[in-house]
Computed example of a mutant assay.
Amino acid sequence: MKAFLAALLFLIAPVALAAAPVRIKDLADFDGVRGNDLVGYGLVVGLDGTGDGFRNAPFTEEMLAGLLERLGVNVTDDALRSKNVAAVVVTAALPPFARSGSRIDVSVSTIGDAKSLLGGTLVMTPLKAADGNIYAVAQGSIIAGGASVSGEASRVVQGVPTAGSIPVGARVEREVEFDFAEVQNIRIALRNADFTTATRIEDAINRDFNKRLAVTQDSGTVVVEFRDLGDVNPARVVGRIENLMIEPEDRAKVVIDHKAGTIVMGEQVRISRVAVSQGGLTLRVSEAPQVSQPNPFAEGETVTVPRTFAELRQEPGIGFAEVAGNASLSDLVEGLNALGVRPREMIDILKSIHAAGALHADLIVE
């Protein structure tokens, strides 16, 4: 234990390593080259008795009646008592530059009290964008992501059988009008805004074309002008730009998932000189009731006598451990691991170091 403590006391800051080069297309999006979200409301049929109950989901009954009327079948409300139909919301993403006739994936989720979509088929469902226009039509067999088994007294569910997907289940019917060939400039939007990364993108583009085409507008935007290139195809220019390699920069972050006990850290995280002490207090309570009953053929009644055992134990701590200044978080975690600190305790220590102002990073707790 003393050896481990000594190792923690004399942490040495590692040599800063340069980030690996990354393509611009993996760091940013190009203005205009984006998808659009689609949504629709439809019916799933062919379920094995796991559909909506019409008493609890009257909208399913109304939609089924409307569907049958459009198909030339007149029915009354009393005739609609099927448990093989479910009302669903259908969502999809229309890719950029999608053309009429191309296929896209769709996701299907129940909105009523249906128990499972296994074996169901989505009936023709129009998908609309935010402007209210129909851009695709979805239909096909659903691949559900779970299983459900029920009996008279119990029910077992694995996964989420009330949601599923239809690979290439929608056909694009309308195109988003965008003439990319007439673009005079384009904006590069960084997914993680950072001035250093933005200026490196600007320098890489200007150096590759040997012209001042790119200008950093702010920490998340770089504007590229095409006018100085003469008569060129903007698509070819963007294809050349998106494959340029740069070394990205980002803010130091520590992400903690307290429920799972997971810690994710960036390489830029640093810790100032700080002393750490950790110990544990364990309270253990157990119940062992005893039953007292009279002898055979004797008068009396059976009595349960409670017996409670409580134990309070102070676990030995690691004492005060001083962390050298400018140490990396990985060094601290390695030292705490060597001392046998459990993940939950390590999370508490990191939160305390951050509260003390010695953890130089954004602490994100989920």
Rank of each mutant, 00 (worst) to 15 (best):
P14V: 09
A28N: 10
L38V: 04
V44M: 11
G32A: 04
L27M: 07
T50F: 13
G53I: 00
L8A: 15
G53A: 03
A13Q: 13
P58Q: 12
D52E: 08
G49T: 06
A13I: 01
Y41D: 07
N36F: 06
G40L: 13
D31M: 07
A7H: 13
L9C: 09
I12F: 01
F54Q: 05
K25I: 10
G35V: 02
G42K: 13
D37Q: 06
G42F: 15
D26F: 03
D48Y: 05
A57V: 15
G49F: 12
G53P: 00
D26I: 04
E61K: 15
L27N: 09
Y41L: 14
L8F: 11
G32I: 05
L17R: 12
D52P: 11
A16S: 07
T60F: 12
A7W: 00
D26Y: 03
D37N: 04
P21V: 03
G46R: 07
V22G: 00
P14N: 09
L43A: 06
A57L: 04
F59W: 08
G53R: 04
V45N: 05
G35P: 05
D29C: 02
V33N: 03
L8T: 14
R23K: 13
Y41S: 10
F10K: 12
G49L: 09
A7M: 11
G40H: 11
L17H: 12
F10V: 12
D29E: 14
G53E: 07
A16C: 00
T60A: 09
G40K: 11
A18Y: 01
T60W: 11
A19G: 12
I12T: 08
V15N: 12
R23T: 08
F30W: 14
R55F: 08
G35N: 03
T50R: 09
L11M: 08
D29R: 15
G40F: 13
G32C: 05
L9H: 15
N36I: 01
F54M: 10
K25D: 13
A18H: 02
F59I: 07
P21H: 06
L43G: 09
D31R: 13
D29M: 14
D48Q: 10
A57F: 02
A16I: 04
N56V: 01
P58V: 11
V45M: 11
L43D: 05
A16F: 03
T60Y: 12
P14R: 10
A19K: 06
R23G: 04
F30P: 09
A7N: 14
N56I: 01
G53D: 13
Y41F: 15
G53W: 01
A57Y: 01
M63I: 00
L8E: 03
Y41T: 10
G42L: 14
D26E: 15
I12C: 00
G35L: 02
R34W: 00
G49K: 06
G32T: 03
A16L: 05
N36M: 03
D48E: 08
V39N: 09
L27Y: 10
L38M: 05
P58S: 11
F30M: 13
L8Y: 02
Y41C: 08
E62T: 15
R55A: 12
G35Q: 03
N56S: 10
A20Y: 00
P14L: 10
G40E: 14
T50N: 11
F10Q: 14
E61F: 02
T60E: 08
N56M: 01
D29H: 09
G51S: 08
P21A: 02
I12S: 07
P58C: 09
A13G: 14
I24G: 06
F54L: 10
V22E: 14
G35I: 01
R34M: 01
V33Y: 14
P14E: 14
